[in-house]
Computed example of a mutant assay.
Amino acid sequence: MQQAIIGFHLDDENHWVANLACGHNQHVRHTPPWQNRPWVLTEDGRNEKLGVMLECKLCDDELNN
Rank of each mutant, 00 (worst) to 15 (best):
V28M: 08
W16R: 02
A18E: 06
A4C: 07
L10I: 00
P38G: 03
A18K: 05
D12R: 14
W34F: 15
W16C: 08
T31C: 11
L10E: 11
W16G: 00
Q3V: 10
T42V: 03
H27G: 09
H9I: 06
N65C: 12
N25G: 10
A18R: 03
P38K: 07
P38S: 06
H24M: 05
G23T: 09
D44A: 13
W34T: 09
R37M: 11
L54K: 03
W39V: 03
D61P: 03
D12H: 13
P32Y: 09
W39P: 03
N36Q: 14
G23S: 09
L54E: 09
K57L: 13
L58Q: 10
L20M: 03
I5E: 02
F8L: 07
N65F: 12
L10R: 11
Q3R: 12
L20I: 03
D61S: 14
L63Y: 07
G51V: 01
H30V: 07
G23H: 08
G51Y: 00
D61R: 15
E48N: 13
G45Q: 04
Q2W: 08
R29P: 08
N19E: 14
Q2H: 10
G45E: 02
R46S: 00
D60N: 13
E48K: 14
W16N: 04
N25T: 15
G51C: 01
N14H: 12
L58D: 08
M1K: 06
I5L: 05
W39H: 03
G23P: 13
A4V: 00
M1T: 04
F8H: 07
L54C: 05
W39G: 02
H15S: 08
P32T: 04
L58N: 03
P32L: 03
N14Y: 11
